[in-house]
Design a protein around this nucleic acid. Sequence first.
DNA 1: GCTAGTCTCTGAATCGATACAGACTGAATC
DNA 2: GATTCAGTCTGTATCGATTCAGAGACTAGC
Lengths: 349, 349
Amino acid sequence: MRPTLQDVATAVGVSRSTVSNAYCRPDQLSAALRSRILDTARQLGYPGPNPTARSLRRGFVGSIGVLFTSRLSYAFTDPFAVRFLAGVAAAAERHATSLLLVPLPTDTAQARGAVENAAVDGFCVYCVADEDWALDVIRGRGLPFVTTAPRADPGVDRYVGIDERAAARSVADHLVGLGHRRVALLGDSVLPDAPPGPLRLAGADAAPHPTTRGRLAGFADALAAVGVGWPDITLLNATDNSRAAGAAAVAGLFAGDDPPTAVLAASDVLALGVLDALGERAATVSVTGFDDVVDAATAGLTTVRQPAEEKGRIAAELLLDPPADEAAGRVLLPTELVVRTSTRPVPRS
Amino acid sequence: MRPTLQDVATAVGVSRSTVSNAYCRPDQLSAALRSRILDTARQLGYPGPNPTARSLRRGFVGSIGVLFTSRLSYAFTDPFAVRFLAGVAAAAERHATSLLLVPLPTDTAQARGAVENAAVDGFCVYCVADEDWALDVIRGRGLPFVTTAPRADPGVDRYVGIDERAAARSVADHLVGLGHRRVALLGDSVLPDAPPGPLRLAGADAAPHPTTRGRLAGFADALAAVGVGWPDITLLNATDNSRAAGAAAVAGLFAGDDPPTAVLAASDVLALGVLDALGERAATVSVTGFDDVVDAATAGLTTVRQPAEEKGRIAAELLLDPPADEAAGRVLLPTELVVRTSTRPVPRS
DNA sequence: GCTAGTCTCTGAATCGATACAGACTGAATC
DNA sequence: GATTCAGTCTGTATCGATTCAGAGACTAGC
């Protein structure tokens, strides 16, 4: 058996309390005794206080959980999510806190179990769709949490997000200004199990995923302002947020007559996929993205920038060092339209 | 106070054991009582067994630690590390295990503390330099671990790596075959606190970081085979593994007379930085990388591919599902030379 | 010489669960 | 009618620490 704190105490001939103090309250005992204890501990091969036992007694763990809507291994393929994580990690470093990444099984009951069982002091919830079950579980545990978007249920929740709708409108306004009227909107999982490609939806509001919903609504706002109604818009579904899915979503789109002159994608990754699919034709169709990931610059993609690391950093900071002022717990970050070469005026026909 | 298992037991009028069984051994009590217990628990707002207490009693946690040599937030900027993590996450998902990312303070004593205090069942140690302290701490705690490279100290350690030296030699052989003899080698932190740019070193063996060391040695092997000795090689230091650092390392390199005709970088990220720095001149200098990250393909970078997700997946798998056969715990993955457009024959002068 | 104060160290209570051996009940078997 | 057995449930020991009030020894001050 691996020795415990009690074994060290016995070996040195002091009480358990004293050994404990030797580790975490050095001012509570004489330096001489302390080093005698530490030496003995080393000889016995005692690795220091058991973290789990310590957490139980102390009532906190020293780590925060990060929850992703998507499969965890997918999250690492999403450049925006990765930069968000980098921000979270930076804040965690500052607070000497570790990060627990919790994979969520697809089965909801099991997923609840995973969240119930996570040994953490709080959660950063990255864009959990309308899956309020996760938030319910977290609330039920009485743990603090931060989301990456405002929630419908107000309460005292803290979040750090952007004005998705306004940001989306800004790119769409740009395209509209260039004269585009025949436009396709492309989103990830516009409807959960829909196939890739064209899709009918009653309106942007019908999209279940809040981020996608906000962005589609913003796109639609700009188009509505110039008389292009929802029925005149081509809506495209991507089965996940990847380049390949973006490419798949527009397959065949430009084969018909009267194809759209522009594609507004709800993320850079999808937009890059569209560019991949367009190939040579990319010079004739305008494409926009969302997020401004690193590759967007290289590809010359017009997009909306939102501060990724910043978002992660602030999310973790709100969790680890909550502002006294409740309003300060609701953060809306600025976004910025970044115009590059992937958008241009409608060619006159 | 948040209710405990005992409170639920009292409320229902049964023993604590029975409530515990209701949660984790449903076959141990009648369905009727079980649902009565669960209902009462819900009414009381009992969130289910406390994960920390459960871990203490059960003796395991259900999560594994991932340790990075570099600052954790840097790790997320390294595309190879991210893909490695994606692999680890994929394996973790399969085993319903969470991932604890532990930031390591720069101060070694504090960093030891962080590793001692991590509540995990084992560690994936990503390329901890010669910093054996981390492995010592882990061994001291009696926890299993997997490293991403063979260790000098054999023991029963498990690892998943590649033959760095042979892989490096394969790209270098390719360059040598193209006629290059005046060559620069570029590595990250060749010497810990050295400035960016040219550097003198007794030999590849003198590099403290094992990965860098292996790769430099492989490069040197290929050059030695055609009579280019270590003193004839320009060695360049990058201060970290980033594009910017790669660019900074070659600043001014091509200004002198008799500049190298090729640069062999120890990672793709550095190589891409070199291409950035070269700009137009990239057409006249051959550059190679290492890893084959996504951007390497776009940039036309000649490189050595190593399976990134696979490495992560196997690392986690070795930890979570250790092979009975000890030799099966030592995995060397295949690598593959990927020739693209960034390398070409030496221009005749 | 007495009181107060400072240092060290101890003991018991506590954190919130799980495991295991056994007690009890009622039905089935011979 | 005695025995066996399966099905339920309980009690106690245990996981490995931290905390806090207080005991004892010693110094200082008056």
